[in-house]
Every structure is written in structure tokens, then in C-alpha cells.
Simulated assay, not measured.
Amino acid sequence: MNGFVFLIIIVVAVIIFLTLLFSFIPVGLWITAYFSGVKIGLFTLVGMRFRRVIPSRIVNPLIKATKAGLNLSVNELEAHYLAGGNVNTVVDALIAAQRADIALPFERAAAIDLAGRNVLEAVRVSVNPKVIETPKVAAVAKDGIEVMVKAKVTLRANIERLVGGAGEETIIARVGEGIVTTVGSAVTHKLVLENPDLISQTVLEKGLDAGTAFEILSIDVADVDVGRNIGAQLQTDQAEADKRIAQAKAEERRAMAVAKEQEMIAEVQSMRAKVVEAEAEIPLAIAKAFEKGNLGVMDYYNMKNIVADTDMRKSISNLNLDKDDTQK
């Protein structure tokens, strides 16, 4: 009985050992690779385990590449995997490029993938160009009328410039700049509406795809709308600004006139005060003249008579003036 139990324990241990062994050593993957024509050693697969590389991520793309006629090595794929690349996508891109007769070596495809671009999508766009649409770009012609243009740009990926080349955002920005320049140089907005192809021709001649990861095949104007009369609005704003400046200057002149008037009033009041002060000194001067004998009593009365006569003449003159005004 004890021998039977011991035998069962040995069988279970062997099964567990074989299970762990075959899970660590991908024998099934090695057999699949062997019958697919991929020559890869079993110890090479074991070495991948120690290098923390999932063997299926290398062997399956290698099988795919071998069936497609590509000459790739295990070391190239494993190095790209360890660098953080997507081995399966790179192999699919190489196969697509080979079918489309596009020169794409593995090193360039790996560099494109490590640069963060989708190399398979780039190959597809190189074979089948894509169309991107710009937002509505507002520009003003020389006659002051706003024109809003929307364009469709046909792009083809440039494999040679995918690493380090600018993306779609740069293309859209440059096309928008070209639209603004073209519309801005037009004499009237009607010229743009009559010949929208002028925008396409002018923008294409600028070579906007320089330094980008794409080649511009065509620029087609999809929509042209007339917007606001910017020129008239600017003239209105200028007139309003001129009006405010004129009002400010008028207010400044009025304030200066008021200040001048206040200054004159102050001067008159100062002169009146001086006159009053001088008149207050007259009695003192007369008293001193009496004391020194320079003025007699008769002289004083004659002076008073002259003053009274002067006041009477002034009163009569004022009465005559009031009478004339009443008659008129």
C-alpha cells in the first residue's frame, strides 16, 4: 500500500515537472517554426525566456516574414522588441511595402516604429493617399471683404522623411497660411470667388510639404463663403475713434477756456480788492492833507461837488440809455 502511494507521488511530480518544463521551453512553438521553414534552435527560445522576451512575439512574425519571402533574422527582431518596438507591425509594414514595390529596409522601418509613428499606416498612405480637410480659414481681400475657405489636401506618405518629418498639423497650418496669403493678395473678393483654383495653384507652388513626412499631391478648394465687410467695419471703428479723439480735444479746449476764465475772474477780483484797498486809504490821505495844511476846507468841498456832479451825470446817462432801449 505504501509503495502504491509512493508511485502516485512520483507520477504526479513527474507530470508537474514536465508541465513546468514545457511551459518554460516552448516546444510547441519550436515545432510550429520548424514545420514553417524557420530555422531556430530550441536553446535560442530558452534564451529568450532568460532575456525576458516572449518567444511568440518573435517567432510568429518571423514565420510570417519567411512565408512572405523576407530575409529577417531572429536577432534583428529580438533587438527591436527589446528596444520597445512593435515587431508584428514592422513585419506587416515590410510585407505591405514588398507587395507595393516600395523600398523599405528593416532598419528604416524599425526606426520609424521607434520614432512613435505607425509604420504600417505610413506604408498604406504611401500606397493609397489620404485626404485631410482643413478648418475654415478666414482671409480678407484688398477690397476689405472677408472670404472663408475650406480646402481638402491629398497627402502621400514620404517614407524617406517619416523620421524627423513634420506631421499633418504642420501641413494644415501651412495650407491655411497659403490661403490667407493668396486671398489677401487678391484685388477683390470676387476674383477669388470666380477663380478658386488660384488658391490651389498658388499654395502648391509654395512647396508646403518641405520638411514634412508627406508629399502634397493636390489641394482642392471644397467651400468658399463670403463673410463680413471688414474694411467697412474698420472704417467705422476708425471714425468712432476719431470722434472720441475730437471730443476729448474739445473737452480739453473747454477746460482750458474755463480755467482761463477763472484766472481772469481771479485777476479782476484781485484788482477790485486793490481798488477797494486804495479807496480805503483816501480818507486817511485827506486827513493827513488837512493836518499838513496841503488841503483846505473849500478845496475839500469843491472836490465833493465835482464827485457829486460826476455821479449825477453818470445817472442821467444811464437813464437815457434805459429810455432808448425801451423805445427800441
Rank of each mutant, 00 (worst) to 15 (best):
G178S: 12
R228D: 04
K150Y: 09
I245T: 07
A65S: 14
V123Q: 04
T44D: 10
G184F: 01
A151Q: 11
L319V: 14
T134C: 09
V46C: 06
G85L: 07
I171S: 03
V127I: 08
S23C: 13
G37F: 01
S56F: 05
N305F: 06
G167I: 06
V226I: 11
V125C: 10
I230T: 01
N195F: 12
V90T: 13
V221S: 12
G47R: 15
K64N: 10
Q238C: 04
A239R: 00
D324N: 13
K274M: 03
V203L: 05
D220G: 09
V149E: 08
E168P: 07
A308S: 13
E133K: 13
L204P: 02
L319T: 09
Q327H: 15
T181K: 12
A289G: 01
L72M: 06
H189M: 15
I216S: 02
I15D: 06
R51V: 11
D113H: 02
I132H: 10
K249A: 11
R49N: 03
Q238M: 04
N318E: 13
G37H: 00
N86S: 02
A210C: 14
P61L: 03
N86L: 04
E205C: 01
T236F: 01
K64I: 12
A173Q: 14
L21S: 08
T236M: 05
R254H: 13
T310H: 02
A259F: 14
V307P: 03
V119I: 11
R57I: 04
R124I: 13
F22N: 02
D197R: 04
S23P: 10
A138N: 10
A241W: 03
I58A: 03
D113M: 07
